[in-house]
Design a protein around this nucleic acid. Sequence first.
DNA 1: CTAAATCCTCTAGCGACTACAGCTTCAAGA
DNA 2: TCTTGAAGCTGTAGTCGCTAGAGGATTTAG
Lengths: 155, 155
Amino acid sequence: MTPRPRLDTVMPIGQLAKHTAVKVETIRYYEQVGLLPPPERTEGNQRRYGRRHVERLAFIRHARDLGFAVESIRALLTLSDNPATPCDDAHVIATAHLAEVRHKIARLRSLEQELERIAATCSGGVEVCDCAIIEALADHSQCRHHEDGRVDLRS
Amino acid sequence: MTPRPRLDTVMPIGQLAKHTAVKVETIRYYEQVGLLPPPERTEGNQRRYGRRHVERLAFIRHARDLGFAVESIRALLTLSDNPATPCDDAHVIATAHLAEVRHKIARLRSLEQELERIAATCSGGVEVCDCAIIEALADHSQCRHHEDGRVDLRS
DNA sequence: CTAAATCCTCTAGCGACTACAGCTTCAAGA
DNA sequence: TCTTGAAGCTGTAGTCGCTAGAGGATTTAG
């Protein structure tokens, strides 16, 4: 009898992807940038993951969902790997991130107001030469919005 | 007498940059991607801009400040170049963008709440093995936040 | 006429993936 | 045992909207 591997904790990358709702390519990317430790490989060079990886990847995904940068996650993971260290650092990272989120919300709300104002003055139909949207964009002086830098709206 | 150029409307790229608060490199980038038309050049191959360029660049900058994507700005500029077309398209672009902004605000607010909750349970000081932040990240089931994709927080 | 400031093009880098090409390996059914 | 199709592998390039730098040319003020 060959020793039977515990199948429930040894899985290929696609399985891990399904379990954690992280794409295969993203898992490989996390390994590449050092967030996820390199797993064992089969003789044919394919990755095989265990429970440790599932947990770590869940941690990473949750942090990413909360908008933490990969750099911050790296720091948080290092902390969680050294259970004896005080958690002050974790608190600093989390509150800094919270501040960032709040700042971003504030800016987006100011944008929202300005866009509301602009869009409301034109309900469509008229010709462009009279369109309030185009005019508002052309003439900055109409604007109540005093920007402090551009906002990145991708997501 | 050589014909005197109207100096106040013929300027090098650095001047245009100062007038519009757009960086020199960014101006060249806008030309490269076709937002700003290529200006005249001196014999020595340097760009010389006129009033038209100031206006167009101001339009672009204002739209970027409001978070419009370069693609949307391209469309808006095309509209404003054809004054006879109806402004329905402009209205569609603006309201779509407004919806996007609102969606983003909603997601960030949900993030904000979750981060508040996590950060509040730990005020620092204790060891990592007991830190609520680390635990919350490790254990997704604690989480009231049901994500619909990741949020991009760069800016 | 000289020197400093500005300008030019071209290339690469950012963050966090995503997509693809071109190949190899695995696992299940006949 | 063989076959076939899904899934895996590496490596490279693309996304967005700039930003930075190298290495050189031009302009302009003194």
